[in-house]
Amino acid sequence: MSNNSRRVIVYSVLIIVSFLCLFWFYALFINATRSNGDLTRGFSLIPGTALIDNWNNMLHCALPVMSSMKNSLLVALSSSILCSYFSIMTAYGIHAYCFPGRKIFYTLAVCFMMIPKQVTVLGFVDLVGRMHLRDSFIPLIIPEIAAPIVFYYMIKYMESTLPMSLVEAARIDGASELYIFNRVVLPLMRPAFAVQMIFKFVESWNNYFIPALILHDDSKKTMPIVISLLRSSNFANYDNGLIYMVIAFSILPSVIIYLFLSRLIISGITSGGVKG
């Protein structure tokens, strides 16, 4: 098959796939601008006129939409930064040094990678209760320091791209180990940092199961919990325009953040750090 006919097939598939990715969200944002009455009349691809009404209804509805947005941002940002930083630090500790127990640590970390958080959640919630950390964000942020999957990714990344010659050169120049980590290794790991930070941010942002078991106070709830309340009987207000508005609002910040970070992640992937 010639490259030209292959190209036609490839482009057609890419267009269909793109359409399937975006269509739902386009329709969501359109629906968020339409009134309940308008929505019951049928499907439309043209924006309605009820955007401001829906927005005001959202601000004055029974759900803590605004505070949950703030809470979600706080939790997702701090946990993703902590996670990337400490995963690189741990991976570096294992990759660049030779000390007794190093192999065992690596093996254990990779084995424990398999344990989903959901499996330990009963004990985790129990522990959080005993530490009096319910309705606090600490149990959602601090545990991210130890993320085996991210650690595994980082160490694989180091094995393939981190030039130890640069570390050696810095040592000969008399730099301290901590300085080398923060000023030499960390910048070299920037693409991996960005990739895993985005993945972690999304994971944390998405997280519904564990926060729903820990956060009960209305002022502490995160976005997914509020979304889940959209269908609950307590919120028996079936204004569909409002429901679409809340859903659209819940995904808006991640869209904005993605527009900034996507350049970072994609350039990070394609430039691939050090060649070789």
């Binding site: 793109s18 990715c21 739902w24 942002w205 998405n206 889940s228 429901i243 995904i251 996507s262 994609i266």
Partner: peptide, 18 residues
Amino acid sequence: KTVIYFPNLIIAASFASL
């Protein structure tokens, strides 16, 4: 690449609700 990663950003709860 930007487009296909986009759905992953959506809160699963929001997507399901949608």
